[in-house]
Computed example of a mutant assay.
Amino acid sequence: MTVHHPQTPQFFLTSPSACPYLPGQAERKVFTHLVGDRASGLLDLLSQGGFRRSQNIAYRPACERCRACVSVRILVDEFRPGRSMRRVIARNADLVGRMSEPSPSSEQYSLFRRYLDDRHTHGGMSEMSVLDYAMMVEDSQVDTRLIQYRERGPDSAFTTASDGDLVAVALSDVMGDGVSMVYSFFEPTESARSLGTYMILDHIERTRRMGLPYLYLGYWVNGSRKMDYKIRFQPQEHLMAKGWERYEG
Results as ranks from 00 to 15, higher is better:
233 F>G: 10
245 E>M: 07
76 V>I: 13
4 H>V: 13
77 D>Q: 15
225 R>F: 00
248 E>S: 03
73 R>D: 03
122 H>Y: 08
247 Y>T: 10
32 T>F: 11
128 M>Q: 00
17 S>P: 00
165 D>G: 03
13 L>K: 08
179 V>Q: 03
178 G>L: 02
122 H>E: 15
140 S>C: 00
155 D>H: 11
236 Q>Y: 02
200 I>A: 07
205 E>P: 02
182 V>M: 07
230 K>W: 07
147 I>T: 13
6 P>L: 15
136 M>F: 00
104 P>W: 15
25 Q>V: 12
5 H>S: 14
88 V>Q: 05
181 M>N: 14
111 L>S: 02
15 S>G: 11
148 Q>K: 08
30 V>D: 07
231 I>T: 05
222 N>Q: 15
44 D>E: 07
40 S>N: 06
208 R>Q: 06
189 T>L: 11
69 C>N: 02
171 L>A: 07
67 R>F: 09
160 T>R: 10
195 L>V: 02
142 V>H: 13
72 V>G: 08
140 S>W: 00
170 A>T: 12
196 G>I: 07
118 D>M: 06
111 L>N: 06
153 G>W: 15
231 I>M: 14
156 S>T: 12
61 P>M: 10
143 D>F: 08
39 A>M: 09
242 K>H: 11
110 S>E: 14
227 M>P: 01
176 G>H: 04
94 D>V: 04
151 E>C: 02
160 T>G: 04
194 S>T: 00
85 M>H: 09
236 Q>K: 03
37 D>F: 11
107 E>H: 06
208 R>L: 06
239 L>R: 10
163 D>R: 04
198 Y>C: 04
246 R>D: 02
125 M>W: 09
234 Q>T: 12
249 G>S: 12
36 G>I: 07
133 Y>H: 06
96 V>D: 00
51 F>S: 08
242 K>S: 15
137 V>H: 01
13 L>F: 05
234 Q>H: 01
5 H>M: 11
16 P>W: 06
76 V>W: 12
26 A>M: 09
139 D>A: 02
148 Q>E: 15
186 F>V: 10
205 E>N: 09
149 Y>N: 02
96 V>P: 06
188 P>Q: 07
122 H>A: 15
226 K>Q: 10
222 N>E: 15
225 R>Y: 00
118 D>W: 03
50 G>E: 06
159 T>K: 03
193 R>P: 05
22 L>P: 05
68 A>K: 14
230 K>L: 05
112 F>N: 02
11 F>S: 09
115 Y>G: 11
143 D>L: 01
171 L>H: 14
10 Q>F: 11
143 D>T: 00
12 F>Y: 07
234 Q>Y: 01
170 A>S: 15
120 H>R: 04
241 A>C: 11
95 L>Q: 09
14 T>R: 00
219 Y>C: 15
109 Y>G: 06
226 K>G: 05
108 Q>L: 11
64 E>D: 14
155 D>K: 09
150 R>V: 01
146 L>G: 05
10 Q>R: 13
131 L>E: 14
64 E>V: 00
248 E>L: 09
7 Q>L: 14
71 S>T: 13
223 G>E: 10
227 M>C: 10
169 V>I: 07
238 H>D: 05
175 M>R: 14
108 Q>C: 04
83 R>C: 06
114 R>L: 10
187 E>M: 06
141 Q>I: 04
94 D>A: 00
